[in-house]
Amino acid sequence: MDKALGDKIPEFNKKPQAGGVGITSASLGLGEHRTKFEILVIILVAVVIVGGTEASLIVFNVPQYVFPKPSQIIVALFTEWVYIWPHLLITLYELLVGFAIGGSIGFVLAAVITQFPFVEKVVTPYILLLVTTPMLALVPLLILRFGFGSEPRIIAVALASGPMVMINSATGFRRVDLAKIALARSFGASTIQIFTKIRIPMAMPMIIVGLMVGSIFGLLTTIGAEMVGGAEGLGNRLTYYSALIRMPQFFAIILILAILGISIYVIFFWLGKRWASWEA
C-alpha cells in the first residue's frame, strides 16, 4: 500500500492548483486552513523563542550593547515611541507616495505596452534592467541633485517599485483568452469595455502579485535610502541608534519594520482574496 495515497479520494479529473504565478492563498501561505492545534504550536514556538532568548541572555549575562533582552526592546518601544513615531510617519509617507507614483506608472505602462507587441519586445529588456539593478545605488546621486529631503527617497522608491509592478502586470495583461474577448465583443462591447471588464479582471491576480512585490521592494528601498543620507525616517533611526549603541531602541525599530512588512503582506493577501480568489 502506498502511504502517500492513503485515504485520498481518487479524483483525477480535478485541475491542479494554478501553479506558482497566481496569488493563490496557498502561495501566500496565510489562507491554508490551520487547526486550533497548529495555531497553538505556532504561538508556542514564539513563546519558546522569545522566552528562551530572554532566559539565556540573563543566564549568560550578555551585556545590553551586544544583544538586548526582548523585555528591554518592548520597554524601549513604548518609552521611545514619542521620538520614533514622527520618523515612522515620514517613512510611511515616502513609501506610499513613491509606491503610488511608481505603481501607477508601472500599471499604465504595462496596460499600454502589452497592446503593442513590437513596443513590448523593445521595452522589456530595459524594464528588466530596472528590475534587476538595485535602485538604492542611485540614492547618493539623487541626494546630490535633490538634497537631503524626502524627494530623492521618493524617487528611488518609485524607481524600485514601478518596474516590479509593471513586469508582473504585463504578464497578467498578456494572458489573453480569445473566447472571453469574443464573448464580450459578441454582446457589442467597446474596446474600452473589453479592457475594463475582461482584460483587467483577468490580469488582476498578477497585478496584485506585482503590487505586493513592488511595495516590499519599495519598503526596502525607503529604509536603505534613509540610511544613506538625511536625518529622518526609520532607516535613519537605525544608523542613529546603532551609532549610539542604544540596542533596545535599535531593535524596537527593527520590530516596527517587521510589523510594516507583515502588514503589507496581509493587505495584499486580503486584496488577493477579494479580487483574485477565482483563480485559486
Partner: peptide, 18 residues
C-alpha cells in the same frame, strides 16, 4: 460587426470566472 439580434453560445460555457 456584432448585432444585438444575434447572441452567441460558446464552447465550455465561457463564463467569466471572477
Amino acid at each position: 460587426k456584432p448585432n444585438p439580434e444575434i447572441a452567441m453560445i460558446f464552447q465550455d460555457a465561457n463564463l467569466l470566472p471572477w
